[in-house]
Design a protein around this nucleic acid. Structure first.
Lengths: 220, 220
DNA sequence: CACCGGGGTAATGTCGACAGTCGACCGGAG
DNA sequence: CTCCGGTCGACTGTCGACATTACCCCGGTG
């Protein structure tokens, strides 16, 4: 028996994860200042690991530092949505293409399970979570470490945006549920079949379709 | 006159920049351990800002933490090169497309100047630097904040890789100089003409061509 | 009443110090 | 000679503290 899942813990990592979760949950609304003493007091730790967590979150785009060094939750505008979708359109078609070429059966299990879960999801929040998870799964399936690195940045942005636009997203999810599931299913089948070109095209189309849903968005 | 370019200085930022430069310059070879007390002593500061700089560099992929928390300079393999090129193939064609659509005259000046400099560059190192700068310029010209965020990660990886493979890159640069300049010039003209589709295609081709130069690289 | 200056408060940036932990080295036993 | 245990040193993770700085409020003044 190997029996030693020891993991050198890092308060900073835990804090980073907790904060990220809290921000997405809406505990810290857009524009809120995250003061280090406040967080340290609430978390029962000193400021050092809090600072480190904030730096990590800043590079992930989950918080931003103003000119005075204070960290705040960024408030995203419609332009930001377009910007985020722009980079998703860069990353995800490529990830789909790589995933189709790599064809890792293990990753397929995850994706298929996600599809099933999506078909039976109840709440819009759950649906949105599964949607993001599906896209994450494709990036992971691509097997590219650095693609995943970039995706982590984007994923946090998507989470942030979902948290801030919850009402609109809820309505849309309800409305787009079947379309989304169908698009995901098509992408999944294409990736599994190994058709890289078509997978790339489907991923691009899925995202540009979503962009079209938001009025005022420029055609890309 | 606004005249106040005050910038709250952060030792961590300076240190991060200095370390990044030092690593690229080869002061810390691949696999070297960057111990915090050593760096703090050399830089004449305490460990706190050094730690923060290391965390920043870690998220940028410039250093990596081992299971014991020590930060080391990652040593890149041929697989890493392929991985890096894979993500560049994701980001840069999209950046070229966006740049063509946006058509910011200011960015064009930078790109054109870079082309001129490249035509008269002497050393391979200079050539490599200009090459990276040209690609950076295209990403900046795309106007997407988050695309730039991801590119920053990739750029550091490219720098790192250039530093570690210097001899091979030098030989290649000498050999590929005219091809590269021609490819860049074509991309520049296409972007300036606003032909997004063709710009995207040229960028992709430029990168896949480079991938083909390295023997053993799988066709993508 | 409007404007300006000063003290108080709070937050950041940085520092030095301490505990825990891990590897390196050395000495002794089998 | 080889292997084991103990000790030493170094480094990370974390903490509390200090200096500096910017904001906020309040009182005084024109």
């Amino acid at each position: 028996m190997p029996l030693n899942p020891v993991r050198r813990v890092n308060l900073a990592h835990d804090i980073s994860a907790q904060l990220s979760q809290a921000i997405v949950a809406g505990d810290f609304p857009a524009g809120a200042v995250l003061s280090e003493p406040m967080l340290a007091k609430r978390l029962g730790v000193s400021r050092a690991p809090v600072r480190e967590a904030l730096i990590e979150l800043e590079t992930r785009g989950m918080v931003e530092f103003d000119e005075r060094g204070r960290s705040r939750v960024p408030s995203l505008t419609h332009d930001d949505l377009v910007d985020i979708l722009g980079i998703r359109i860069a990353l995800e078609p490529r990830a789909a293409s790589l995933a189709a070429q790599r064809a890792d059966p293990l990753a397929f299990i995850d994706l298929e399970r996600n599809l099933d879960a999506m078909r039976t999801a109840r709440t819009p929040t759950e649906l949105a979570r599964l949607d993001t998870a599906f896209h994450s799964g494709i990036v992971r399936a691509s097997g590219s470490r650095r693609l995943l690195l970039c995706w982590n940045v984007v994923e946090h942005q998507v989470d942030l945006w979902l948290a801030q636009m919850q009402s609109r997203v809820d309505a849309l999810c309800h409305q787009l549920r079947d379309t989304t599931v169908a698009a995901h299913a098509a992408m999944f089948e294409t990736i599994r079949s190994g058709d890289a070109l078509r997978a790339e095209e489907l991923a691009r189309k899925h995202l540009t379709d979503w962009l079209g849903v938001f009025p005022g968005a420029p055609v890309v």
